[in-house]
């Protein structure tokens, strides 16, 4: 699939999607095409549904009892929510970085090797290679190469988050979802993560939830503004930040509410 106007290849297509937590509807009729190898930022006030939306893209909401989704979410043209879909295979294709960095209480090496091991990589040499590659990609290699077998819990907050990125890359995904990955970090670590995101988009389709509009402006190619469970506006980041079509978007961008 290719977007006719921009010429971008479309990685994810969301069509008429409604999402419910039990009786409560959290997302209303979302339609969105997400471009391959670009960074798409999801912004909006808290509770607007941006995180919920993000979690529908790897069916992470499935773990919560009583959730229900209507409509379609296509990744590379195949329906994520069809009953035939292999959820596990899907999650392998879609990596996720959480708001709170969540390294497992294992060694740095074992954290990154966790995914590959699950997916059947047994050979120690292969694992070592994967771990090294992913740490290099996540710009953490130089800091930890001498202590791969120490506990990941001993890393700083920013390092932990980069470790989680490395861990997500280790399963070789196409898409990386990031749920406010820098919200708990200091400005310097945040900057590192942002640099990293710009590097990664060469190889990955990245979707990032952020409450920080400067960050959205700095890292993303496209920006989607959510409000009260609806997608209000979705366009090139530059356009959203300079001349948005919707009044609500403008109000939010300029800080008049939220």
């Amino acid at each position: 699939m290719v977007d006719i106007q921009t010429g971008n290849k479309i990685k994810i297509r969301v069509g008429n999607m409604n999402f419910f937590y039990g009786p409560v509807q959290a997302l209303f009729d979302i339609n969105m095409d997400i471009a391959e190898r670009k960074v798409t930022a999801l912004i909006g006030p808290s509770g607007c549904g941006k995180s919920t939306f993000l979690r529908t893209l790897n069916r992470m909401n499935d773990i919560i009892d009583g959730t229900r989704l209507e409509g379609k979410v296509l990744i590379d043209g195949s329906d994520l929510y069809s009953p035939m879909t292999d959820v596990v295979g899907l999650r392998k294709k879609v990596g996720m970085i959480f708001q709170k960095s969540n390294p497992f209480p294992k060694s740095i090496f074992d954290n990154i090797a966790y995914g590959p091991r699950i997916h059947g990589v047994k050979d120690k040499k292969d694992l070592i290679e994967i771990v090294e590659n992913c740490l290099i990609k996540s710009a953490l290699w130089d800091e930890v190469k001498d202590r791969l077998d120490t506990s990941a819990m001993g890393l700083s907050g920013g390092q932990q988050q980069r470790l989680c990125i490395a861990r997500a890359l280790a399963i070789n995904p196409d898409v990386v979802l990031m749920d406010e990955p820098a919200s708990a970090l200091d400005p310097k670590s945040t900057l590192k993560i942002e640099d990293l995101i710009s590097d990664l988009k060469k190889d990955y389709t990245i979707i990032i939830v952020t409450h920080n509009m400067q960050q959205a402006g700095r890292v993303s190619d496209y920006t989607a503004f959510f409000y009260e469970g609806r997608l209000i506006e979705f366009d090139e980041t530059e356009k959203i930040f300079t001349k948005p079509n919707q009044k609500q978007t403008e109000d939010y961008i300029t800080g008049r509410f939220g």
């Binding site: 773990i63 596990v88 295979g89 996720m96 969540n102 699950i118």
Partner: peptide, 25 residues
Amino acid sequence: KYMREGSLALGATKWETIYKNVLPY
């Protein structure tokens, strides 16, 4: 909870998650 979410997000099945990332702890 994040031990489970983290593992599931890496494509582990529910049982793999429980067996490898919950039960040991």
